[in-house]
Design a protein around this nucleic acid. Structure first.
Lengths: 217, 217
DNA sequence: GTCTATAATTCGATAGAC
DNA sequence: GTCTATCGAATTATAGAC
């Protein structure tokens, strides 16, 4: 069966294929999925891109679906690792959240093809168990890191005590995903000149949400 | 009322009900487009739904594309009319913006099929002149109404003076569109129980953005 | 309705590492 | 000798053509 355990005890093998083979396969699959979508990406094409045989793929992954999911998981976990260093309660909260916004938006762009694939899948088929599981198992942990950061900062008195962490996290993430999906047309809206490029956008969002709309006392 | 600004030369037909025929055609087209998408909706099917002939359609609209656009324009203008009554600078700003969020989200849902069509088109082809023109001519006016409300409220001292109206408007709209597109999976995220249904979500967003994240003085 | 092409998945076997 | 990565060939599923 597919041993999907990620933690091989680093048995220094002399063979070119150990656990890195798996990583190479994921990388190759990411490219092919990105280019052709899930349905359009054949196992044969992925095998060719990874320079291995089709059957080897099924040695590593139980199904095409499982491979696809591993690709997404890999990207999400990579971002998750960044998160830990970005969200440090020791720093100023606004600065910290600004970093988060920028890194998250950057991540969406770096993995743009996969990001589009995932968003599209959720839009088309959000009620499917596949989608629900993907969000629950892969994205929820990262979301929780952000929400936990907000809750912690709240406890320490760095953030408004009656703010809802989950709602705030959602607003921040939504602003990024919305921008990722619709940046091309945003320049057509009035007043958008002042918002500018990616980085400026992230800072404008944080300024807005962090300080709020109401008059400050 | 329907002042459908158009590039079409005003064929001033003397027939009474000329304008209502146009409206009926738009309504029928909206249904057919919603059900089958742009490509899947044939002019013949639209003509049948509107109980008129194909050629009558081309008397009212220069092309299928123009009719499609009129459908979107019609929905946007309908929402634009609601906006004027919702955004009244006389009321409390938070309450007013809460109403806006709820109405906007409700509008997205009421016109769900068309909304999906438009969002999809922007995602797939946002750089096309069609999309840019759509946003510039159809959505920008409504966006501007919200931005202007924020600017006005700012001038009157109801909102923080150094807040960026365009950024704030974007955050609010993004939160709604994001929710519209991904509501099905949001329940998989931790802490979402407290956010609840449509109306609660709107209020949670407004609470978050209006009061901000930082500790209030 | 059968036929066919394509793609996913399974099977059985081989080779090298410990 | 067992374990695992790998492969080629065989099997199933399915969508489209005729």
């Amino acid at each position: 069966m597919a041993t999907v355990t990620a933690s091989t005890p680093a048995q220094s093998s002399v063979l070119p294929g150990d656990d890195s083979a798996r990583q190479r396969l994921i990388a190759a699959a990411a490219m092919v999925f990105s280019e052709h979508g899930f349905a359009g990406a054949s196992i044969a094409a992925i095998a060719e891109a990874a320079a291995i045989s089709k059957s080897t793929i099924f040695h590593h992954f139980a199904s095409k679906q499982a491979l696809y999911r591993a690709v997404i998981e890999s990207a999400a976990q990579e971002f998750g690792r960044q998160l830990d260093s970005v969200l440090s309660t020791r720093d100023d909260a606004m600065e910290c959240l600004g970093r988060f916004q920028q890194q998250h938006l950057q991540h969406l762009h770096d993995k743009a093809p996969i990001t589009r694939l995932v968003l599209r899948q959720i839009e088309d088929d959000g009620a499917s168990e596949d989608c629900l599981a993907l969000v629950r198992d892969v994205f929820a942990p990262n979301f929780e890191k952000l929400a936990n950061y907000l809750t912690d900062a709240q406890r320490v008195g760095m953030l408004r005590s009656d703010m809802q962490p989950a709602a705030a996290a959602l607003v921040l993430v939504a602003a990024n995903i919305f921008y990722f999906q619709h940046a091309q047309v945003l320049s057509q809206l009035p007043g958008m000149e002042t918002v500018g490029g990616h980085a400026d956008y992230s800072l404008a969002v944080i300024d807005t949400v962090f300080k709020g709309l109401q008059v400050q006392a």
